[in-house]
Design a protein around this nucleic acid. Structure first.
Lengths: 346, 346
DNA sequence: CTGAAAGCGCTTACAG
DNA sequence: CTGAAAGCGCTTACAG
């Protein structure tokens, strides 16, 4: 392997000082067009690619952003969010020469260590904070560390940091209205862990939307986003004196588990109970019955979050701002239908 | 934000030269125990964490490994492999101060650009090459770039690079034997894209294992690992003159789609057809019927691959070696049963 | 507009 | 065992 070409090679080949080469290559003012072009041409000829190491040290930037996903690896696997989210992040950062370091952390304790190391070793220029908890310790931590950070959460949340994400309010409201319009009067909810901001938002929206139609919110069961927890929710539901006629689930995976549990217990979906999900994952259109759900747009969220982080890194003093992502569309599947009584009545 | 403490601060506080501080902190010989301890103590007091930027430039290492996943983001989402695989990678590298840069690339063209940039910008010290294709261009590319690389593939594959992974031979053979023992004589296969090494291995193993039991391999249908493709496979299967009594699928997701498609077409599983998967993802135990499958161990593969890459980076001249990962266990679910004729016969 | 110099924070030969 | 010096490949004031 021959020596890599450095900016010194480019400068000497162009007959200029390395400071001129640097300025020209970085598109900075103070270089005549003639020499700028010559330097660019020579850099190309020599296949010059600046070393991130030299650049990092001199410019005090890592050209790297950090993303710590705080959840168990097994849960991550099931989550439909990450592929698309990360693809979106990449789309936003790649052209700036930035790169994303990705870590999984099952616990807050490990997350904290990872963030501290990121900051102390100057390994990243900023971080993405995902899956916000109620009273999330990470907010205080990134502030303490002076680490630029963008939070991903429903845009209804109030945090002292730049934020982007989708609100579930329009989606869950549409889901509830769809059910009420079908004739449902007893609409239950299978919630996610309520210490997560996004599941709390969905739960509250379910209750508010049901009330807004003049109905009493039905039973509420707490689950944890997984298929297994949806299945357990089905078992708890089937032990009730009276089944609700419809269930709004916090997400698709949970709804898929719920449907499987109900079907295993001999409860027909949607004949006996209608079920809705949230996320619009690929699988939701392939299960039987196909799921009525709301599409999330993780790629758009990832792209926006990363773009915001880059802006914040360029201007760290900037006051927090929020960029809402438009809510995704309602997808009506075969898992929702009029309740039996209504069908009989007609 | 106060100034970060640097090695200069540590050295001057300890009253030694920075070279001594460096040697002591990095556990290198040539420092007396007394001064070594003193330096360590002072570094701790000052909460010194070495800057990766300085370290990188001086030591000509990035302390970063690259992982480019070459597939569409949507497919990634569905893939159960990555969460656990990445968790395993982290486990292996975190203590060495290494970090993983993660990229998704839908095409070979983009992958090539990413690898070239990694190499040219000295952004990573090595890469993980996953999901090996038949005649994979990445093998030649990493060699050309002089980029240390570890390949993840079934350990039956022969490539001129260090390799780790699980062979599907024991698992698929066990699956086929299970079906034959139940009485099946017509065992079909839904394959993954056969230009992938791992799906080719599974296909070939299916054919060999069926033959080894003195039977003719049944129909073979090509799919692409997704639920949707499994569903399409079901439709093609149902158009055949005679249904096979059992189907070995390339992976769980595909098997889940196949079962959904069969059930939608009124074909009972396992009453009419037995179905097997591969991977042992969480979902496979929650679908109805629960899936007979073989567990994959992505975390072990990730950990081993990353550990190997670190070894290779430390000794780039090392001759390629292979570390096989023990195959995972057979999981017998409710999706396999004796064929109807056998049940009737008895 | 252009260039010489200092410096980012380390590691690594090399003298003593 | 210990220290002074050079150097990794850039960027960034600062003179000219």
């Amino acid at each position: 392997m021959s020596q890599r070409t450095t900016i010194v090679d480019v400068a000497s080949a162009a007959g200029v000082a390395i400071s001129s080469a640097s300025a020209a290559l970085n598109g900075q003012p103070g270089v005549s067009n003639a020499t700028r072009e010559r330097i660019h041409r020579i850099a190309e000829e020599l296949e010059y690619v600046p070393s991130q190491r030299g650049r990092s040290l001199a410019s005090k930037r890592a050209f790297t952003i950090g993303f710590v996903v705080q959840r168990a690896p097994e849960v991550m696997s099931a989550d439909p969010f990450f592929g698309a989210f990360i693809a979106g992040v990449q789309k936003a950062i790649t052209d700036s020469g930035y790169v994303m370091v990705f870590q999984i952390s099952p616990s807050w304790e490990l997350s904290e260590r990872l963030y501290r190391r990121f900051a102390a070793a100057r390994q990243v220029d900023g971080v993405l904070v995902d899956q916000l908890h109620v009273n999330d310790e990470r907010i205080g931590l990134v502030k303490e560390l002076g680490l630029p950070a963008v939070v991903i959460a429903p845009d209804t949340v109030d945090v002292p940091l730049p934020l982007t994400g989708q609100s579930a309010v329009p989606g869950v409201t549409a889901l509830v209205n769809h059910l009420v319009d079908l004739g449902h009067r007893d609409i239950a909810h299978v919630a996610g862990r309520l210490d997560y901001v996004h599941s709390a938002e969905r739960r509250n929206t379910w209750a508010a939307a049901v009330s807004a139609r003049g109905l009493q919110p039905g039973v509420q069961i707490e689950a944890d986003f997984t298929v297994a927890s949806g299945k357990q929710a089905a078992e708890r539901l089937m032990r009730l004196d009276r089944l609700p006629t419809a269930v709004v689930c916090v997400n698709d995976l949970c709804a898929i588990g719920l449907m499987a549990g109900l079907q295993a217990g001999g409860v027909d979906v949607p004949g006996k109970i209608s079920v809705t999900g949230f996320d619009g994952i690929d699988l939701s259109s392939h299960v039987h019955p196909s799921l009525t759900t709301v599409k999330a747009m993780p790629e758009a969220v990832g792209e926006t979050a990363a773009a915001m982080l880059l802006e914040l890194i360029a201007d760290p003093g900037r006051a927090p701002w929020t960029v809402p992502i438009a809510p995704g569309p309602l997808v009506i599947g075969a898992s929702t239908a009029p309740p039996r009584s209504v069908v009989t009545d007609s």
